[in-house]
C-alpha cells in the first residue's frame, strides 16, 4: 500500500473513477492545464483530454448549473469550486436546483453531481480563503455534505460521492492537503457516506469532530491519555445525513459529549449534534454537552496573531477536554 497525502488521494480517486466510468468528468476554474490551484486535478488533462477535464469560465453559478444540466442528461460531473468561499454565487443552483430535483419531480429526475471545494483556515487565507461554510448546506434536505479527515477517507469517500445518485458537497480542508499522509490503497474501495469512524476508543469523555480539527483532537487526546483521561474520539466524516445511531451510542458510552469544529458556533454542526444527543439520550448524560468552535465573527482575519486567536489548536482543545472530564 502506498503512502499518499490527502490531495494525492483525491487525484487518485478522480483518475480511478474517470477510467472506470466514461460518464465521469471534471470541470472548474484552472482544473485543466494548471491541474487546479491546489493541484487536485494534476495529470488528468493529459490522461483524459480537454473534453473530460474542462477549464471553465470564472463563473460559479454557471459551473454548478452546467454540471446539473450534464447530470440531468446522463453524465456524472465532478465540479470544482476553487475555494468554498466562492461557492456563494452558486448557492441558488445548489439549494434551489440540485437539492430539489429529485423531490420536485417525484423521482423522475435525480441529480448525481459532486461539488468539491477546499475549505478552512490556518493558512493565512484571510476572510475569503479560509471559511467553513458547511453549516449553510447541512440545513438543506436533498444534499449530502462530506468532510473527510484522512487520505484514506478522502479517496474512499470521493469514490462513494461520485457513485452516489444524489448531489454531494465534498469539502476538503485545504490545510489537510499536504499536512496529512497515510496509507491509501491503489485499488478501488469506498468509504460509506453517512457513517462515522471511531478514531480512538475511550471511556471518560466522547469528542465529535471532523476535518482538520479531528487531528488536533487526536493530539489533544494523546496529551490527556498521559494524564489518565481516556477520550473516545469520533470522526463525523459525513455532516449530512448524520450517522444518528453511532453518534448516540458514542455519547451514551461515556455520558460526556464535546463537539469541536473550526466553523463558528452559533447554528453550527455542534448545535445539531448536541440537540440530537439531548433529545434522544438525555438520561445517559453525566454533564452538560459542550461545544468548542470558532468565534462568532464574520470570518478569519489575515493578521497572524488574529488568525491564531481564531483557530482552535491542540492546547485549546485539551483544555476544553479537561473541563468536561472534570465535571
Amino acid at each position: 500500500m502506498a503512502v499518499k497525502n490527502y490531495i494525492e488521494a483525491i487525484t487518485d480517486a478522480l483518475a480511478l473513477e474517470m477510467r472506470r466510468d466514461e460518464r465521469v468528468f471534471v470541470m472548474g476554474e484552472d482544473v485543466g492545464v494548471r491541474g487546479g490551484v491546489f493541484r487536485a486535478t494534476a495529470g488528468l488533462l493529459d490522461e483524459f483530454g480537454p473534453q473530460r477535464v474542462l477549464d471553465t469560465p470564472l463563473a460559479e453559478a454557471g459551473i454548478v448549473g452546467t454540471a446539473i444540466g450534464a447530470a440531468l442528461n446522463g453524465m456524472l460531473p465532478v465540479a470544482e469550486i476553487q475555494f468554498v468561499d466562492f461557492i456563494l454565487p452558486a448557492v441558488n443552483q445548489i439549494i434551489s436546483e440540485a437539492a430539489k430535483i429529485r423531490y420536485r419531480t417525484a423521482g423522475d429526475f435525480h441529480c448525481p453531481i459532486v461539488i468539491r471545494a477546499p475549505y478552512g483556515g490556518g493558512v493565512h487565507g484571510a476572510l475569503y480563503h479560509s471559511q467553513c461554510l458547511e453549516a449553510l448546506f447541512t440545513h438543506v434536505p436533498g444534499l449530502k455534505v462530506v468532510t473527510p479527515a484522512s487520505p484514506y477517507d478522502a479517496k474512499g469517500l470521493l469514490l462513494s460521492a461520485i457513485r452516489d445518485p444524489d448531489p454531494v458537497l465534498f469539502f476538503e480542508h485545504k490545510r489537510c492537503y499536504r499536512l496529512l499522509k497515510g496509507d491509501v490503497p491503489a485499488d478501488d474501495y469506498t468509504v460509506p457516506i453517512g457513517k462515522v469512524a471511531v478514531r480512538r476508543e475511550g471511556s471518560d469523555i466522547t469528542v465529535f469532530s471532523y476535518g482538520l480539527m479531528l487531528h488536533f483532537c487526536q493530539e489533544a487526546a494523546e496529551d490527556l491519555a498521559s494524564e489518565g483521561i481516556s477520550v473516545h474520539l469520533v470522526d463525523l466524516r459525513t455532516l449530512l445525513p448524520l450517522d444518528r445511531e453511532s453518534i448516540l451510542a458514542a455519547a451514551s458510552r461515556t455520558g460526556k459529549a464535546l463537539i469541536v469544529h473550526e466553523d463558528n458556533k452559533t447554528h453550527g454542526i455542534g448545535a445539531e449534534v448536541a440537540a440530537l444527543i439531548s433529545e434522544e439520550v438525555f438520561f445517559d448524560l453525566d454533564a452538560p454537552i459542550m461545544r468548542l468552535c470558532g468565534p462568532d465573527v464574520p470570518a478569519m482575519p489575515y493578521s497572524s496573531p488574529m488568525e491564531k486567536y481564531y483557530m482552535l489548536d491542540q492546547k485549546k482543545i485539551a483544555d476544553k477536554m479537561r473541563e468536561l472530564a472534570a465535571f
Binding site: 453559478a61 454557471g62 454548478v64 448549473g65 452546467t66 454540471a67 446539473i68 444540466g69 450534464a70 447530470a71 440531468l72 442528461n73 446522463g74 453524465m75 460531473p77 441558488n92 443552483q93 434551489s96 436546483e97 430539489k100 430535483i101 420536485r104 419531480t105 423522475d108 429526475f109
Partner: peptide
C-alpha cells in the same frame, strides 16, 4: 419536467434552467 418527453425540470428561480441547457448540450 418529464424525462420521458425530454423536458428537463425547472424551478421558480428564473434563469437557472438556462445553465442546465448548456450542461445538457455539453453532455
Amino acid at each position: 419536467g418529464s424525462r420521458r418527453l425530454g423536458i428537463l425540470t425547472g424551478s421558480s428561480a428564473v434563469g437557472t434552467q438556462i445553465t442546465h441547457a448548456v450542461g445538457a448540450a455539453l453532455a
